[in-house]
Every structure is written in C-alpha cells, then in structure tokens.
C-alpha cells in the first residue's frame, strides 16, 4: 500500500484545522499507530528523550499536528500497513521531528506546501512510497519542498542582500537620475 497524498490532503481539508488533542492524547494516538503495525511504541522515557533531543518550542505542537493528521485521514492506516515489525519507533520519530524541525502547526494547517512536506516526510521516515510516483520522483519532490534546506538558503540570500544594500541604494539612485518623463518611450 502506498501513501495517497492528494487523498490525505483532501481528507484533512474537511476536518477542523486545529488539533483538538492535548499532548498526552496526541502521544497516545501516535503510539497506537505503531501498535497497529505490531511495532513497539516509544516508552514514556523515550518520549522525554525525544523532547530533549528536539529541544524546540515547536516540538509539542508538531506532536499534536502529527496525531491530528494520523487520526483524521488515511495516513494512520497506510502507516500501519507499511511499517515493518522490526522498525524502531523512537528512531523513526526522532528522524521525523528532525526533518520537520522548522515547521509550525500553523504552517501545516494553512500552507499547502508545508502540509505536503509534512506528510511526505512522514511517509519517507516510515519507509513508505507515494502513490503514482517512482521513488526518485518522490525524492525529487521532497527536495523541492524541503523547508529546512530552503530556510538555510534564504538566510544565506538575506545575508547577501544585506551586504548588497549599499550598492543597491547607489544603483537605484543612479537609475532614478536617468528617469525620463516620456511615458516610458524613452528609447
């Protein structure tokens, strides 16, 4: 069975936008998903270690959002089917939360691209494939969507823009001096 991303997104579009689950319930929903696949879920200590490892103020809302999308769509059922019994739930979750580190619950709710990224990254860490796509196509799409990498690129770009500021001002002042008054027909 493969993850049907458009179908899952459609299912999510018809449910409340915010996760209704308090943290403990969200943890229980995620643990249940692993149990459905006969995979031992993370223990209480494992969850504490996951939180420590993430060391992020966003982590709890990410847990809530994962539980919400699992419980509200076919994501949970597909996950249970693709997980292999030997899978390490704590390791999967650790990789998942590391991969989605900069995503806020609001982004997953309201931003089509970040929601798709969130779902695809889950599909990827549980070892699933995406419906109607070759593995290489899925990898390519994940790379396109990767907000963590893009954020680094944007920070670099911002740094460059900051360094350019003085030159930008100079060039624009020069362009303004060349301003003509002929309704754009200066050529």
């Amino acid at each position: 069975m493969r993850f049907d991303i458009p179908l899952i997104r459609k299912q999510l579009a018809s449910v409340p936008v915010t996760s209704p689950y308090p943290h403990d319930l969200a943890v229980a929903i995620i643990c249940d998903t692993f149990r459905m696949a006969n995979v031992r879920p993370p223990s209480r200590q494992d969850w504490a270690a996951l939180e420590d490892h993430a060391n992020s103020p966003l982590w709890r809302e990410q847990v809530g959002m994962l539980a919400h999308v699992l419980a509200s769509s076919s994501l949970r059922e597909t996950t249970a089917q693709v997980l292999v019994k030997s899978a390490n739930a704590t390791d999967i979750l650790q990789r998942f939360f590391a991969n989605i580190a900069p995503l806020t619950a609001e982004m997953v709710r309201s931003n089509a691209f970040r929601q798709e990224e969130f779902l695809r990254k889950w599909a990827h860490v549980v070892g699933g494939e995406v419906k109607d796509e070759s593995p290489s196509q899925s990898t390519q799409r994940l790379n396109q969507l990767d907000y963590r990498k893009a954020q680094q690129e944007m920070v670099r770009a911002e740094e460059i823009r900051r360094k350019e500021a003085e030159q930008r001002e100079k060039m624009l002042a020069e362009a303004a001096r060349r301003e003509a008054e002929a309704r754009g027909w200066r050529e």
């Binding site: 995503l103 931003n111 691209f113 396109q144 893009a150 944007m154 823009r161 930008r168």
Partner: peptide, 29 residues
C-alpha cells in the same frame, strides 16, 4: 525571488520558499 529583498521577506513570513513554485498552479498559494 531569492534575489529580491521584498519577495524574500514575504515568502519567509508566509512559510514559503521559491522552490515551492514549480508549476503555474502553485501560484495560487
């Protein structure tokens, strides 16, 4: 978009990045 200070800031604030724009259909977001 990456080279435009205004667009870069706008995309960051919206949780978007230029790589999200792969097809014309994406523009709506």
């Amino acid at each position: 978009l990456l080279a435009s200070p205004y667009h870069l800031r706008q995309l960051q604030e919206a949780g978007l990045h230029p790589g999200d724009l792969q097809r014309l259909e994406d523009l709506g977001h």
